[in-house]
Design a protein around this nucleic acid. Structure first.
Length: 671
RNA sequence: GGGGUUGUAGCUCAGUCGGUUAGAGUGCCAGCCUGUCACGCUGGAAGUCGCGGGUUCGAGCCCCGUCAGCCCCGCCA
């Protein structure tokens, strides 16, 4: 098809802005054809741009025949420039913002054609692999346009917020140093320095601390971070952080800067959040919710019922009661008719879920219309049942599920079931008060989880001995009251670290940092990093801390997760323009992909024992400085080849054997 | 590394107990149509049943392997 030129055509209006006010005006519009409705001698076309859709129309009686023919040739997603007069419609469309008017065409330019799309833009439920392969088309869809706009708005709001508070925006290196601890690094081989590597930053942690030493006092950066770990619905290998650091601050000061920002962000999507947010100690979060990122939209708490089974005939539970606190019996109780009448099949499904979380099974006690039904009913004497109900504060109908084991085990099982049962029961429970208790749909439940442990014991892999590792990172300040425990009882030492949690997602985390070299050295020692290693890996940090480092701290917000929650979607890919699959692949560009051996050799990733000779018309010469000896051997071998074979790149190993000969085009020659 | 799940027309899916020529809706193409807006009507084209192997007289369906998407566990300071 012959295409028209844009030339000096300029739009006079955005398509979505046209109203009855513009009736009679001649307008020029640009955009994509959403759909043509060809009624024969009357043709309608919906023209879409970023701001909306408007209907174009032409008919046989009034329009130029050439124009009408051109209009009929248009297909979906053709790119058009249209000129016409705004007119009130004969039949209006109340579902469309511009539905009262239409554009009577006086001119039409087809700026580009479009092949039929591999998937419809207006359908839900297109396979995600297909969407990712044609992401540039996927991004034409209304939902993604909305999400990208929201992301842009959020980023702007964030920048303005920090600017108003006198923060300075920095850029820190993407090519940086690999550090031990933490996530696996993405590595970038250095061509200039054989065998050496840059790492992509897991976060700009050390740089932002160093900028405090430099005296900037308030740092902010919206930056990309990279972690080579396995993916989840809310995790990508590269993701964006709002990175913040401040000097002369306590935990409360950092939180005081972040809370009003969160309130503003919530407002952006019409949600109310009130600062200050609740603070919850890590220990309580684990005890009540079985999670260090509790979803407070659910009001159900985990309860300890170990004591109820001290004399029980149920051996599993009694054993825990006799374990002197090593193992406990913990439970969730969901009140109400819906919970009390959950089917056996539903309970089996929850049991499977519990097993996946490491539980042996899922003991339950259900009080429904027909009274008690329980997986351990035969061990539950009426008196025990009453005591259990009292302990659970369980009146009326309802369901209790139990987990037995160490706190870590039961927290994991019950923390998971708490949310699964809550969302399910909230949708089937008829009592709105209970439903709301299970899952308050409208809430934006922010909270700070504080007083994290500083260190945790890590079992060594593959024969390595276990050791203490930093929960947050090795630069986190120990709680001042716990400083002595760093050597004596590392596991009991708290950190001045805090996570910001929204609706069960960790959207941010930070800490007050160690700002003196001595404490930093003690910390390194506690996690088994010797003085020499600390010097080699973090020498610059220790230096910096010895030249007048101010007390400082900060946090990082996960922008992708935050926008995901603001957008109300359940997947981080929906708010990232070009995301990767769960296998860390880009279906659109097909990255990562293999590279030439030559590129690998340049980066010293293939052994250099090979040498490449470029064979010319007159003689061959070494491109990378081979030895005269090899040259002689190569010449001898090349002499035995056909002229065709002898042309091009010849790769020799250290013994002068020809490993590979690529033919290049060029004049033939003979030896 | 492990578990679960999905893969059939461009797209979304159905396909019975293993049995004739693998279907529907939609999209696409062609014709008709002056008030459509998910336009309508008529007709047509369109398939590597993800891929490879096996069992069988016969496989979309059963078995083994493999690839890819999604979810979860481990992992993610």
């Amino acid at each position: 098809m012959r295409l028209d030129r844009l030339d000096d055509f300029q739009r006079t209006h955005r398509n979505g802005d046209l109203r009855l006010d513009q009736v009679g005006q001649t307008v020029r519009l640009l955009g994509w054809c959403r759909r043509v409705r060809n009624l024969g001698s009357l043709v309608f076309l919906d023209l879409r741009d970023r701001w909306g859709v408007v209907q174009l129309v032409a008919n046989e009686e009034t329009a130029d025949p050439e124009l009408l023919a051109k209009l009929k040739a248009v297909r979906s997603e053709f790119v058009l420039a249209a000129e016409g007069v705004v007119a009130e419609r004969e039949s209006k469309n109340p579902n469309l913002a511009t539905g009262d008017i239409e554009i009577r065409l006086t001119g039409l330019r087809i700026l580009n054609t479009a092949a039929p799309l591999p998937f419809p833009l207006e359908d839900e439920g297109v396979g995600e692999d297909l969407r990712l392969t044609y992401r540039f088309l996927d991004l034409r869809r209304k939902e993604l346009q909305r999400n990208m706009l929201l992301r842009s708005e959020a980023a702007n709001l964030i920048r303005n917020h920090f600017r108003e508070l006198d923060f300075i925006e920095f850029e820190t290196p993407i090519l940086t140093k690999s550090t031990p601890e933490g996530a696996r690094d993405y590595l970038v081989p250095s061509r200039v320095h054989a065998g050496e590597f840059f790492a992509l930053p897991q976060s700009p942690q050390l740089f932002k601390q160093l900028l405090q030493v430099s005296g900037f006092e308030r740092y902010v950066q919206i930056c990309r971070c990279f972690r080579d770990e396995d993916l989840r619905a809310d995790r990508q290998p590269e993701f964006t952080q709002v990175d913040v650091e401040m000097s002369f601050v306590r935990q409360e000061d950092v939180q005081g800067v972040i809370e009003p920002l969160m309130v503003k962000l919530a407002k952006l999507v019409g949600k109310d959040a009130t600062a200050p947010f609740p603070r919850l100690a890590f220990r309580d979060a684990m005890a009540w919710y079985g999670s260090d990122k509790p979803d407070l939209r659910c009001g159900i708490k985990i309860q300890d019922v170990t004591d109820c089974f001290a004399a029980s005939g149920f051996n599993l539970f009694r054993a825990a009661a006799e374990s002197q606190g090593q193992r406990r019996v913990r439970a969730l109780f969901f009140p109400g008719e819906a919970a009390g009448s959950l089917s056996r099949k539903a309970l089996d499904a929850y049991q499977e879920q519990a097993k996946q979380m490491g539980a042996g099974g899922l003991p339950y006690a259900k009080w429904g219309k027909d009274g008690l039904s329980s997986s351990f009913k035969k061990f539950l004497e009426p008196a025990d049942e009453a005591a259990l109900r009292q302990s659970l504060n369980a009146a009326g109908e309802g369901l209790a599920v139990f987990a037995v084991g160490t706190d870590a085990q039961t927290s994991k099982v019950l923390g998971d079931l708490r949310l699964k049962l809550a969302t399910n029961l909230a949708s089937i429970e008829k009592d709105p008060n209970l439903s709301n208790l299970f899952h308050n749909k409208n809430a934006y439940a922010f909270l700070w989880v504080v007083d994290f442990p500083l260190l945790e014991w890590s079992e060594g892999e593959a024969g390595e001995p276990g050791r203490w590792v930093a929960c947050h990172h090795p630069f986190t300040s120990p709680h001042p009251d716990d400083l002595e425990r760093l050597e004596t009882d590392p596991g009991a030492c708290r950190a001045v670290a805090y996570d910001l949690v929204l609706n069960g997602f960790e959207v941010g985390g930070g800490s007050i940092r160690i700002h003196d070299a001595e404490t930093q050295n003690r910390m390194f020692r506690a996690i088994g990093i010797g003085e020499a290693e600390a010097r080699a890996k973090f020498g610059f940090l220790l230096d910096a801390l010895s030249y007048g480092a101010p007390p400082h701290g900060g946090l990082a917000l996960g922008l992708d997760r935050l926008v995901m929650l603001l957008a109300g979607v359940d997947n981080i890919r929906e708010v990232i323009a070009f995301p990767k699959t769960a296998q860390a692949r880009c279906l659109m560009t097909d990255a990562p992909s293999p590279v030439d051996d030559r590129q690998l050799r340049e980066l010293h990733l293939l052994p250099d024992a090979k040498q490449t000779y470029r064979v010319g018309a007159v003689f061959f010469e070494s491109a990378e400085g081979g030895s005269p000896e090899l040259r002689g051997q190569a010449l001898q071998q090349i002499g035995q080849m056909t002229p065709r074979q002898a042309q091009g790149l010849v790769t020799l190993d250290a013994q002068g054997q020809i490993l590979d000969a690529q033919t290049l085009s060029g004049p033939t020659f003979e030896f």
